[in-house]
Amino acid sequence: MKVSAAEAARALDLNNHTIAKLLDAHILVGPTSASGRRQGVYVTSLETAQSVPPTTLARGDVAFHVGAAESDTNPAHRRTYAGWHAMKSLAVSQGDRRRAWGGVWNMTEDNADGLGGHAVCSVGGFIVDVAKVEGTRRCPCCDLAVFDLADPDDLAVSRYRGRRFSGVGQGSLFTFG
């Protein structure tokens, strides 16, 4: 059984753009036609997504909102891909997964400085990774912020892993708590 993308959007309190992002990252799964065109969302996939408990971003933490994994064409980032994908992410090391979302961000070191908490990576509001922010530094090629990430503490893991932010739509690439 399947539902339309519009029905899935209503059920998850999201917009159609975000549903497409979740399908691209394989957080939601649905049938496709022979030409590769999406044809809705499987009910079991939607029910699984609906069962993910909500959370909020703690003060001092930052959330990075990414899309599906894609090749990173900027060699300065020193990573082969950016973003997140359920199947592709299982095939790479934890360090490579973190580099795919924890590299250079379009914020200055000044407004990133002092976070010192945790960073979470979300696709369409669904949290797919969490890490401790050990520091920030300035990218030598573009003056933007680069985060130094490490394993999260147990409190952050229990707060974020397997959770989602409610009502996420198109907006900023990052959110400060």
Rank of each mutant, 00 (worst) to 15 (best):
S45L: 11
S122I: 00
R99Y: 00
S51N: 06
H77E: 05
R98K: 04
W105K: 02
G125P: 04
L23D: 04
Q39E: 14
G83Q: 06
A20K: 15
A86D: 15
C142A: 01
L144Y: 07
S122R: 02
S51I: 05
T56A: 05
E7N: 02
A20F: 06
S93L: 07
C141Q: 08
G135T: 05
V123H: 03
R98F: 03
K21I: 15
S71P: 04
A131W: 09
H26E: 15
A150H: 06
R59L: 08
R137E: 14
G60S: 12
G117E: 07
T136F: 03
G171V: 15
H26K: 15
P53G: 05
S158W: 07
H65G: 01
R159N: 07
D72L: 02
F165R: 06
R164K: 15
V146H: 11
A76I: 08
P152I: 01
A91R: 12
R78T: 04
F126V: 15
A76C: 03
N111A: 04
R59C: 02
D113Q: 09
A119F: 06
G116Y: 00
R137S: 10
R10W: 00
M87Q: 05
M1Y: 10
K88C: 02
E47P: 00
Q50C: 12
G162Y: 12
L155V: 11
V62D: 02
V123E: 00
F126T: 03
Q170D: 12
C121A: 08
G67I: 07
R164D: 01
D72V: 05
A63V: 10
F176H: 07
D148R: 11
L22W: 12
T44N: 03
A34E: 11
V29A: 13
G83M: 00
T32E: 13
H77F: 13
P75G: 08
D154H: 08
P53W: 05
G124S: 05
D129N: 10
A6K: 14
R99N: 10
G30H: 08
L23P: 14
G36S: 11
N74G: 09
S89V: 02
A9Q: 07
G60L: 11
A34V: 15
Y160I: 06
F176V: 15
F147C: 01
N111F: 00
T18H: 00
G36E: 11
I127S: 02
V168F: 08
D13L: 11
T55Q: 05
V29R: 12
R137H: 08
G102F: 03
P54G: 04
G114Q: 05
L12Q: 02
V66I: 13
L90P: 01
V41G: 04
G36V: 12
G102E: 02
N106A: 12
C142D: 12
Q94T: 12
T48A: 10
R38H: 14
A25N: 10
C139W: 14
Y160Q: 09
A68M: 01
D113L: 12
W105Y: 01
V66L: 09
F64Y: 15
L46T: 03
T175M: 10
